[in-house]
Amino acid sequence: MSRRLAQGLGDDGASDTSEPVAAVVALGANLGDRAATMESAVQALRALPLVTGVVVSTPIESIAVRVTGPDAAAPSYLNAVALVTTRLAPSVLLSYLHAIEARHGRERRERWGDRTLDLDLIAYPGVTSADAALILPHPRAAERDFVLGPWLEIDPDAELAGYGRVDEVLAHLRGDA
């Protein structure tokens, strides 16, 4: 079986369903002109094949998070979340996200290091995956208020597979539950 068929893809990279889904993509940047970079990335998302809509949250500032925890000495992040209405399969969408990052100067030198642009595929409706190349939902989404808050802004009824309603996950994370 070809890899494309194993991934449920047609020749055009679409998923095996003709119905579009609203994939959740987190955007972040803490180097350079963060706002301009993120706006350029949103335009690149809108230009992707088989993408028919992109709704983006209001950007928020957040402290950098390192492997060792929050780092107030590092440049702060500008973060947002986008709902990307697409027929692209999740693996294909992720490949496009990595290409957009590369076009914006993203270098993968250090885990959780500073970056010009970070695009993470957070969730893709109806898909869970533990494959090392594509983990869905994103393994740390439920731990990141800078993902959950903006996501909730643009989708008040959002649910995170394996965790439940995003508003409840966020309230628990913030200690409000």
Rank of each mutant, 00 (worst) to 15 (best):
L5D: 15
L5M: 12
A6Y: 06
Q7E: 14
G8W: 08
G8H: 15
L9D: 06
L9K: 08
G13K: 08
S18Q: 09
E19L: 04
P20S: 13
V21I: 15
A22D: 10
A23L: 11
A26F: 02
L27D: 01
G28C: 12
D33R: 14
D33Y: 11
A36N: 10
S40F: 07
V42P: 05
A44L: 07
L48F: 11
G53C: 04
G53W: 01
T58A: 14
P59Y: 04
T68F: 08
D71A: 13
D71N: 15
A73N: 04
A73S: 09
A74Y: 00
L88S: 10
P90W: 07
L94D: 10
S95H: 10
Y96P: 03
L97M: 05
H104R: 07
E107Q: 06
R108D: 03
R108V: 01
E110N: 09
D114M: 03
D118V: 03
D120N: 06
D120S: 05
D120Q: 02
D120L: 06
I122Q: 00
V127P: 07
D131R: 09
A133L: 14
L134R: 09
L136M: 03
P137M: 03
H138Y: 05
R140E: 12
A141W: 10
E143L: 09
D145M: 01
V147W: 03
I154R: 04
P156I: 11
D157H: 10
D157Q: 15
D167R: 12
E168W: 02
E168F: 05
H172V: 08
G175H: 11
